[in-house]
């Protein structure tokens, strides 16, 4: 179906659940007002990014009232949002929820937790262990959280699982100043979203936050990328924004006819070779 996606390029406050929930609810109301069908928020939209020892203090269990409020709003608009999730056995996950028609329809726990350079996620968070596509009213979707997308296998698995739209929730720190008019991280992400969409004949909806935490900027630039790899629309760099993207079913259909790489992808071959590699490397 044709649908309109809103990318809520917000500026969360570090460790302030209540304030961020307000920010999120305002964006959801705006999305409803502007007749969007789906709204995306960044990774850790409810908490901010460099949480460190705050992780347990801002974590929500899935039955938390904050989540219930968003679930209720999803009767009017589908919502994809990032938060810290705590499980019954007190593991803390960097989680993305997909809410639709008043229910949690899917949950993705970030698998690849970057722990290098300025990142320290694995110190504080537990690792997710799966990539699963899921059905929605917009067709089959897959969710990724930031670093997940930098692992080729992650969007590949989702696409092989039938996803034709990838939702990527991000808190990407801006870095790498050069003569280019974009930061190194911006240029790299734009190459990545375009390439991923092109290889997998899938749409990519990328929502990145803005603001500064301890001097680190988050560069925004949220975008909707067509299955051809062309960015349909992009959010402001470094500033808050609210981006609306109209996504046409016909565009997906035509791209899949013109470039049927996913149709021709040989799953059995890939699995066979990966199994061989795993077996050989474990000898």
């Amino acid at each position: 179906m044709d649908f309109t996606a809103a990318l809520a390029q917000i500026k969360p406050k570090l460790g302030c659940l209540a304030d961020n929930l307000t920010l999120v609810e305002e964006a959801v109301e705006r999305g409803i007002r502007e007749q969007a069908d789906l709204i995306l928020f960044p990774e850790l939209a409810l908490t901010g990014y460099f949480l460190k020892d705050l992780v347990p203090d801002v974590a929500l269990s899935l039955d938390a009232p904050e989540i219930a409020r968003l679930v209720a709003l999803s009767r009017h608009i589908a919502i994809a949002i990032g938060l810290v999730e705590v499980t019954k056995d007190y593991r803390f996950f960097n989680t993305a929820l997909y809410l639709e028609n008043g229910a949690i329809r899917h949950l993705h726990r970030k698998v690849y937790l970057p722990t290098y350079g300025l990142f320290d996620e694995l110190r504080y968070l537990a690792r997710g262990d799966r990539f699963r596509a899921f059905d929605s009213k917009f067709g089959r979707l897959g969710m990724l959280i930031c670093e997940d997308m930098w692992h080729l296998s992650a969007p590949y698995i989702l696409a092989m699982d039938g996803a034709t739209t990838l939702l990527c929730l991000s808190s990407s720190p801006g870095r790498g100043i050069s003569t280019d008019d974009r930061l190194g991280s911006t240029a790299a992400w734009q190459r990545l979203t375009a390439t991923t969409a092109t290889f997998l004949n899938a749409r990519v909806l990328y929502c990145n936050r803005v603001g500064y935490e301890d001097g680190v900027n988050f560069w925004g630039g949220s975008e909707a990328v067509a299955p051809s790899g062309i960015a349909i629309t992009r959010g402001a760099i470094m500033d808050e924004d609210f981006v609306l993207a109209g996504l046409k079913e016909g565009e997906l259909r035509r791209e899949r006819i013109f470039s049927p790489m996913m149709r021709d992808e040989n799953l059995a071959l890939t699995v066979r070779e990966l199994c061989r590699i795993e077996e050989e490397s474990s000898r």
């Binding site: 406050k13 570090l14 460790g15 302030c16 460099f50 949480l51 460190k52 020892d53 705050l54 500064y212 935490e213 301890d214």
Partner: peptide, 8 residues
Amino acid sequence: RYSRDWGK
């Protein structure tokens, strides 16, 4: 360990 912008 907390960021300096804790709560900001």
